[in-house]
């Protein structure tokens, strides 16, 4: 399998706080990588490095390199908006825009200059079908997205990300605000999407990481302690810290 992302010697500081310490990680194409670790361990910060979301935060300095399909996304002169167009992101709390369902999904295309009406309609439909939302909402695409249930909203947010055809999908605790049934639906979806997308998911739910991911990376206080296939991590982790964390002995 080809390498999708190659992170080497990545360091990130918020002012004086060293939030990510010398991270080296490579992510395979069409795989699901789960990032686990206690709160504040840097996993969310790390995922935000992959689409340069950290640029929005004040006083952040980053060094090291992040290669996305061989291209250094931290080189000077890179088009950041275009990068984010290519790397989709789903957030912890469902955050649909207070617009219609249709407009939510179409938003990414519109802001990126797509005007062709039938193309947009097709893409919206396709994305909603992919996220198994189409049958639930096809009759009221004009309805406000805010009126959907939490689980539907989150799937809408995923559909919104998929509409712009990203090459990679970042998910920051996508089910932490959802009930178990919605969570199962999203996990199902992740499994489906894996066939087409490279997915990186941050999760606090260890069972979730075990269920959906191929590779698991354990972060602790800004360091990447261990990364291995998920079955290895959950049956026989090499590092004691990893074992302590996944067996619930600290964190």
């Amino acid at each position: 399998m080809a390498k999708k992302v190659e992170v080497s010697n990545l360091n990130l500081r918020y002012g004086d706080f060293h939030a990510l310490k010398n991270i080296n990680l490579s992510i395979e194409e069409r795989s699901v990588t789960a990032l686990i670790g206690p709160s504040g361990c840097g996993k969310s910060t790390f995922i935000r490095c992959l689409n340069r979301m950290n640029d929005l935060v004040d006083h952040v300095t980053i060094d090291g390199s992040v290669l996305l399909e061989g291209e250094d996304i931290y080189r000077k002169g890179i088009d950041i908006d275009n990068l984010r167009y290519r790397v989709g992101m789903v957030f912890q709390k469902p955050n649909p825009f207070p617009k219609s369902i249709f407009e939510n999904v179409a938003y990414g295309l519109r802001v990126n200059g797509v005007k062709d009406k039938s193309f947009i309609e097709n893409k919206v439909r396709e994305s909603l079908v992919k996220t198994a939302l189409w049958d639930e909402v096809k009759d009221d695409l004009k309805k406000s997205a805010i009126d959907l249930s939490g689980g539907q909203q989150q799937r809408l947010c995923i559909a919104r990300s998929l509409a712009v055809e990203p090459t990679m999908l970042l998910m920051d605790e996508p089910t932490s605000a959802l009930d178990p049934i919605s969570t199962a639906k999203i996990e199902d979806l992740i499994f489906e999407l894996k066939k087409q997308y490279t997915i990186v998911i941050v999760t606090h739910n260890m069972q979730q990481a075990a269920r959906v991911s191929d590779v698991t990376a354990f972060f602790y206080i800004g360091e990447l302690i261990e990364t291995d296939t998920t079955s290895k991590i959950f049956t026989n982790p090499k590092q004691e810290k990893t074992q302590n964390y996944i067996t619930g002995r600290f964190g």
Partner: peptide, 15 residues
């Protein structure tokens, strides 16, 4: 206006 909406917009490649 919740910041999450701005972030969502940026994440879709909006300026």
């Amino acid at each position: 206006v919740p910041n999450s909406l701005r972030v969502a917009s940026y994440a879709l490649g909006a300026t």
